[in-house]
Design a protein around this nucleic acid. Sequence first.
DNA 1: GCGCGGGCCCTACCCCTTCAG
DNA 2: CTGAAGGGGTAGGGCCCGCGC
Lengths: 301, 301
Amino acid sequence: MVNDTELIDNLSLSSMDQIMFYLAFSAIRTGGHRHGTFLNAAATAAKCAVYSTYLEQNQSLRKTGFLHHIEPKRVKEIIEEVRMALTEGKLLKLMGAQEPDYLMHLPHYWLATYPIATEDADFAVQGLSLQEKRRIRSKLQADLPKAKVISTVQLMEMIEYLHERSQQDFPDKDKLPLSDSLAEHIRRQLIHSGTVIKIDLNSLPLPLYALARESYAPAGKAARTRAMIEDTARFFKLMRRWAEQQPRVIRIVEELDIPQHRIDQALEHLDVLLQNWANQYHQEGGETFILHLCAGAKPDE
Amino acid sequence: MVNDTELIDNLSLSSMDQIMFYLAFSAIRTGGHRHGTFLNAAATAAKCAVYSTYLEQNQSLRKTGFLHHIEPKRVKEIIEEVRMALTEGKLLKLMGAQEPDYLMHLPHYWLATYPIATEDADFAVQGLSLQEKRRIRSKLQADLPKAKVISTVQLMEMIEYLHERSQQDFPDKDKLPLSDSLAEHIRRQLIHSGTVIKIDLNSLPLPLYALARESYAPAGKAARTRAMIEDTARFFKLMRRWAEQQPRVIRIVEELDIPQHRIDQALEHLDVLLQNWANQYHQEGGETFILHLCAGAKPDE
DNA sequence: GCGCGGGCCCTACCCCTTCAG
DNA sequence: CTGAAGGGGTAGGGCCCGCGC
């Protein structure tokens, strides 16, 4: 088992399950969402599907329950929860973005709270000897963001603040409290993602921390991951309209064998073709169309 | 709130949540999967993401637990479950297809068990008067599949059989027993989907049933829904490779305004362009490429 | 039909201690 | 010290079945 795709392929999943898997891997592994957050988001989506059926069934709790195999009692709670979200702006448990807020916002908050003003004021920690400072600086790359090295306590305070902030819109009963285990999870995820560097010094009881990047994910990777999710969401949405036979939605699938030496040429040509097509028909003020295309070697299924 | 899309739009979801919603609506509302089945499938996908991290973290339960905010104890159970699926072929709880087996297979099973041999032998139920038969026939369309009208008991027996069959590959402890409420759910879903017609007669204590279609979903709709899910899964998979910067994967997004009177022309032209492109580079024996495209009026977001 | 009562069990959460390397 | 393995707990929710209206 070398990578994610192999695991997914080995299980010979249906297309529906595949989409679910790609989504889970993107959210949990790439994005750093908590396991529980993903499950909650799935439950919320299902709740809204139930709500939609409820409206369709003349607001009959029982009929809705039968259709989806849920107890009317439970349907009632679900309907109430979704209704509150739609009419009173109460929040549903969703993922909200590629990454959780508390991970995403840390670099900016760190830079704002502990900026390096002058060259040699690069530590927010008191009582370090000159030798210790030198050893730490030698461990760190030169091109790190201009944020001070901080203590474990300072890092934990920031995590605490950012977590509270991400929970502030929820009523008290729905707030996820920042337990020790949750704080520890956030700290580890920050280190694992490469956002934060942990510095161990034998002479100190607790490690120190340095900020490694100005954003949670590496800049290029984050952009591509975001594009992947956004494109897929819009593609899915367009395909739903196509499946409903709505007019003026076009779906094209082409499968072809391309000789090795012509592959690059073919793909470049494709790009040019579509640009020309867009230029040819584009005219300010017309109806705005969006086109999504992805092509590559066919995954063996 | 007129349709599903409006509900989804009203909640101003992130792209990730949108994908989850489209998936939930397709599985639960369109496909007829049980609410619990969808939640299980989501949990299974998350478990596999956890398993993948576990391998990456040198099989450390603890580190995996920290990264995803799960107890090591629970990680251990998850790892064991996925490992059993990969090495011993034990089944994971997945959706498995667009529709649940017990819904999908009913028309074929009905036709095989209660076929109409001769014109007037169209009832599998004893003791109906000629007048009753005439009234029932007048309620039914002429072009129904050649399957007999059956009793409630006979329908329930078929549901029981098909459900057992769909569960046979699970060990006894994992089998979902056919409870009264589950059987009732299946019966309702069959009627709601238009697969089965319920016939009420005042003179009879229990309703009778007729088969309405030769497949669970209307033929055309089923094909388009399947294509939607399959295309989206492959699009997602290709985009994942694009996001990882794998070579020879191309992603194109075009946004343009098309004047009303040129829209049909533009879309037809697009189709021709891509066919010509495929013909131009196709050569038997080359590397097999797949291209997915969808275009339509831009959804206002 | 409908609403309300009971129940079981899994699992996401929290925390603790003990023992081995 | 860290990691594995065991213990404790609460709350929510997916399931089942009743009864009375």
